[in-house]
Simulated assay, not measured.
Amino acid sequence: MTKRLSIIISIIYFSFLVYPADIFAEYFVFEDVIYAKHADVPDSNLFLKGDMYVPSSQGPHPAIMLMHGGSWQLGDENFYADDWGPYLAERGYVVFSIQYRLSKPGGTYPTWPGCLLDSKAALQFLRGNATKFKVDADKIAVGGDSAGGQLAALLALTQDWPAYTQKYANNPFANVSTKVQAVVSAYGVFNMPSWWLWTKNPKFDWAPYGMTTFAEDFFGGTPMDAPAAYFEASPINYVRGSAKSLGNVSLQNDGIRVPWFITWGMEDPDVPAEGQSVPFVEALKEAGANVTAVPVPRVGHYWFNLGKITGQSDDPSDCYFDYKKLEHICTGATPNDYVAPKLLKFLKDNL
């Protein structure tokens, strides 16, 4: 053995004694990071948590906070563990995938606006710990799919409004800004009364399984019972109020000034684009927003956080959602394969 090779082996051996075995990993995962404890959740001992994916390089890095879908009733922070969390972290983005309080079937525990307040607290935690997690505090995006897409839109459109940021004054980061620099929303629910009406349709996937709709569980009643809540939780209302065509009575909204990435499946039976994403994109454009719209052909719902990223470049084909495995399966390229390069360009250009 040459002297040079012996020195190299010694250095490698010493490195593994001093540093963890994953020293050469492209990113690190911090699981179950507690971002808040809110006393008005069902279990007073519940700590709200998220998983943090942090690139191993020095930073600071742009970041994106992700909120899962699940009709405000299902899901958790692990929903992005097999796709966007690792994928984006490997490419230089800190990803904070969070949980938030969930409603219960039958309308026994409505969670509006609690889930938005939780998301605000998570965003404050992320920015407040920017140095610890190698985050550039001036380059934070929010994103999500379905219910999470609605929450991401509302985070942007309500920014630092006191009604949503001052509820929990004892939070360590209660005074930290919740302004965001970009929004990513996949097949989000932007018009709550419209979506409630659609879920009453027998063609809706989940219609036969509950006495109440997901929206009724979320708000504690129908749009007739709680009209203000349905209005307040609909992102499209904030955007339409900022339409340029309104002239002098158009309402300024800082959320209109950030760039938006909106994607959806063109054959979505759960959140039909023609009633949600398409009019929302039109409203954003009418208000003067910078919008990247990415309709995905031949696919429906669930794919953004329950689908794979394989790196294939073809359009998605032969895709379906397996309800037993809770997995979006494709024989060829996946919807996320179709979206990924477009999303990376959007983030690179805007963060």
Rank of each mutant, 00 (worst) to 15 (best):
A287V: 01
K325C: 00
F96D: 04
Q252H: 15
L46K: 10
D314Y: 09
W303S: 07
W206T: 11
G50L: 04
A25E: 10
L154C: 08
A81S: 15
G85H: 03
A153V: 06
I98Y: 06
P86G: 04
T263S: 14
F261Y: 09
A226K: 14
V29K: 10
Y302P: 03
A182D: 08
P55K: 04
I236G: 00
S185T: 14
R240M: 14
L326T: 11
G188R: 05
D337P: 05
I9Y: 10
L157K: 08
S242L: 02
P335L: 05
A289L: 00
M52Q: 00
F218K: 00
A283Y: 01
G114N: 13
C319N: 06
V183I: 13
K324Q: 13
S103M: 12
D82L: 11
T213D: 01
Y80S: 04
F204M: 06
L88K: 05
V239C: 00
A163R: 14
T222N: 02
F346M: 00
Y35V: 02
G143I: 09
A207H: 15
I236Q: 04
S6N: 14
D217A: 09
R298G: 09
V239L: 02
L246W: 12
E26H: 11
I98V: 15
S146G: 12
I34V: 15
A283F: 00
S177D: 01
A130G: 15
M211V: 13
L151A: 09
S71R: 12
V278I: 15
S250I: 03
V183N: 07
Q312H: 12
P227C: 01
W84P: 06
F204C: 07
G247Y: 05
G148H: 08
S234W: 03
T111R: 05
K37Q: 14
K345G: 01
F125C: 00
G148F: 10
E26C: 08
T131L: 10
G275H: 13
L351Q: 09
Q99R: 12
K308M: 12
A141M: 14
S317E: 14
N170E: 15
P227D: 00
G69V: 03
R91V: 05
D160I: 08
W195N: 12
R240H: 04
K132E: 14
G114K: 12
L157Q: 10
V258C: 04
D160A: 07
E327H: 13
L48Y: 01
N253A: 02
G300R: 03
K324F: 11
A36M: 06
Y93F: 15
A174H: 12
I7A: 12
E31V: 02
L344W: 03
G114I: 06
P202G: 11
A243H: 11
G114H: 11
V142K: 04
D318Y: 07
F218I: 03
D205C: 08
Y302F: 15
A243E: 09
P20A: 01
A215E: 15
Y187P: 03
L5K: 13
P223W: 02
T263L: 13
W84Q: 04
I9H: 08
W84K: 05
V18D: 01
V299T: 09
L123C: 03
G114R: 11
G144R: 01
A63C: 01
S10G: 15
V142N: 06
L17M: 10
T158V: 09
V142M: 03
Y80V: 06
L246E: 00
W264I: 04
D315L: 14
G210C: 10
V296S: 05
H328D: 05
G149K: 06
S242Q: 02
N201E: 10
I11T: 08
G69W: 07
